[in-house]
Simulated scan of single mutants.
Amino acid sequence: MSTAPPTRVVVVEDSPVQRAHIVAVLQATGQITVVAEAADVPGALEAVRTHRPQLVTMDLELPGGITSELGGVEAIRTIMAERPTPILVLSVHTPSRESGEALVALDAGAIDVLPKASAGDGAAAETLRRRVRVLSGVPMVRRPRATAPVPTARVTDLPVIALAASTGGPGALRTVVAELRGVGAPVLVVQHIHAEFVESFARWLQETTLMPVTVPGHREAARPGVVYVAPADTHLRLGPGRTLELDPEPELLSRPSADELLSSVAAHAGPAAVGAVLTGMGDDGARGLLAIRQAGGRTFAQDGESATVDGMPRAARDLGAAERVMGLEQIGRSIAAIAAGGR
């Protein structure tokens, strides 16, 4: 009986102690092999060019950069431009500065972010190994990263907008949400991301889109023009009277679940619902988006050419849930036009 070859990984970390720990954790079970290590930006780029790994783990505080960005972010941009490779950012356990920088790294092209596993934390070590094995098989594409223009129209009496994304989602959501400034409709967001980064993601989304963004409380009223990001490990749903409901049940594979959000918007907004499924692994969101379409709402799925990972949007397209399939800027502008009373 044949077994799969070990996953080939490059580890980029400037601290020798941290680097040795990461290598030991990754190689502990024999399913992952570290083909190269690097401690700075030039070393990271050379290791990827030479060894062509299936995945790169990336520290953000790297020396050797030549731009004003963090070294790790500069390395990510260069790798994604030269040889697109899944990059997993390993960030220190801080809720403020570096976790915010991790969101910048996701926007630059990293595929996911995890806290660095402490020595002796077996659960975190297994999470890291499992995430490396899953992400190493994700196909990556080389694509330009344009800044979305900001619309100026203001509208009222608009629908409920629900957006769902997973892997590659922060940058995609930033592009779509930036198009919605001035739209007088609540925007509900499910982004699959590690629990430690939810609050930082919300702050980053607000800073980069200039939209008011918050993580809501249970039974909070959904206000027009505000973006609501689902809390960690909790489903976000639209309830009666356009209130927001938070519930940890059911314990699905994805929590928060895009299907839970989109289905609730279909149930309580009906023809006024607008849903979009963006880049991500798996099929979460496809059934919920179909529910919106069947309720008479408007539905969108990101096209495969622009999606970092064409799993969730492809599932929505295959199910016939998406009324329109298009790129991110087009999705944002189309939703804004619908909210303004256009087609």
Rank of each mutant, 00 (worst) to 15 (best):
F201K: 01
R314N: 12
A230V: 05
P159S: 13
V189C: 08
G168F: 05
A123H: 11
Q206R: 12
R287W: 04
H268V: 00
E69Y: 01
P231W: 13
R49L: 12
L106R: 10
F201T: 03
R174P: 00
A20K: 12
E98P: 11
R255A: 07
R223C: 01
P224S: 15
L188P: 01
A276M: 10
T152C: 04
V17N: 03
A47Q: 07
G169W: 05
L289I: 04
E61V: 13
L290C: 01
T94E: 15
L55K: 05
P250W: 14
V132E: 07
A337Y: 00
T214D: 05
S99G: 08
A75M: 08
L290D: 03
V41S: 06
Q18A: 14
E260C: 03
A202G: 06
E13G: 09
L236R: 01
E199H: 14
A36V: 12
R131P: 02
L319W: 03
H93S: 09
E260Q: 14
Q31V: 02
E305N: 05
M326K: 06
P271D: 13
V215P: 06
A117G: 02
G342I: 03
L45R: 09
R142G: 08
R77K: 14
G327C: 01
T243K: 12
R97G: 02
L205V: 08
P16C: 08
G182C: 10
F197N: 06
L45Q: 07
V160N: 05
R133Q: 15
T175S: 15
G341C: 12
A295G: 09
T94A: 15
I161M: 03
E37P: 01
V183F: 01
D59M: 09
A110K: 07
R324M: 09
A222N: 09
G341H: 12
A291M: 11
Q191D: 02
A47H: 05
A272R: 15
V213A: 06
E98S: 15
P250I: 14
T67W: 06
S254G: 00
A307G: 10
T308K: 03
E260V: 15
L106F: 11
H235Q: 03
L180M: 07
W204K: 11
L62F: 08
V23G: 02
G341E: 13
R298W: 12
L26W: 09
A108R: 04
Q206E: 15
P231Y: 13
G71R: 09
G225F: 02
L244K: 08
F300H: 13
V226D: 05
R317Q: 15
A123S: 12
G342M: 13
P149H: 12
S91C: 07
G270C: 01
Y228N: 05
I111D: 00
P84K: 06
V92H: 02
E196R: 14
L106A: 07
A105H: 05
V190H: 10
P170S: 11
Q191C: 02
T308N: 00
A123I: 13
V141G: 00
E305P: 00
R174I: 02
P256R: 02
Q206V: 00
R343L: 10
L163M: 08
P115H: 08
A24I: 00
T208K: 12
D283E: 15
A307I: 13
D310Q: 03
V215C: 08
L210R: 11
D283W: 09
F300V: 06
